[in-house]
Amino acid sequence: ARTATSLTQGITDLVTKRKLDAETLEELEDLLIRADLGTATAARIVEAVGKGRHDKMIAPDEVKGLIASEVEEILGPVAKPFVPDAGQKPFVVLMVGVNGSGKTTTIGKLAAQWRSEGKRLTLAAGDTFRAAAIEQLKVWGARTGAHVVAREQGADAAGVAHDAITEARANGSDIVMIDTAGRLQNRTELMDELEKVVRVVKKLEPTAPHAVLLVLDATVGQNALNQVEVFARTAGVTGLVMTKLDGTARGGILVAIAQKYRLPIHLVGVGEGAEDLQPFSARDFSRAIAGLD
């Protein structure tokens, strides 16, 4: 994660110039709002920072540290590494999320990581809707040496998932990753289709999918709360991935999501390459929000 330059600058200015009074706290709240934490979460954090410190003179780095530790307190408990259970063979991962959030790329990155650990992988080209989505996954399969199971464009996504698990069993894969088409959570017909994918997977293997990862784009605003709610209800999301943290967006909505849903946050995407995937670190993320390196 990177430093939010404007945020750093803002906090520095406002604290070197004044003490921690109501106005200063309000500006602090504004800075959190600019990172997409939302009004309620920003207010709560600022209240905690101000508690017992009203009108105290306080050094800039101290304020940043206080914000970071308040944010970290919320995120710490949900930061969990993503480790497939070796007892499940194949371990089935379903990737879900709205359009363009980074599902297919994240599958490619995970495939690269697991292949380098010597695992055998099967990828299911479950996005049978978007133009060249199948080809995109095949490129990742070829790059990483993962086996890709695909049918033609327009085929039933649940059928592809079914084929992939069957083939993975036959070829001794350790992990199956199922790509799905992007869908907005208010599109009921598309959410029903996703539910069907889950149902078909379960029919084949009652404990699967063993992980359902919701991929969120760091630029997203308050709508992400709703995305989490509906995807969790429909597909049984087990954890979150946040992509595109290499851009200017801070992804602060994760803090509000952590408070409300307490879903594990596993991974962050920091670029388009195979290696641009990192475990989610509550500390790094919180420090970036507060403008600390």
């Binding site: 630029t219 200017t248 967006a249």
Partner: peptide, 15 residues
Amino acid sequence: ADSLTGQDAVNTAKA
């Protein structure tokens, strides 16, 4: 641009 974008919309648009 994505209409679901949050506060980053200004940075992106300006840049």
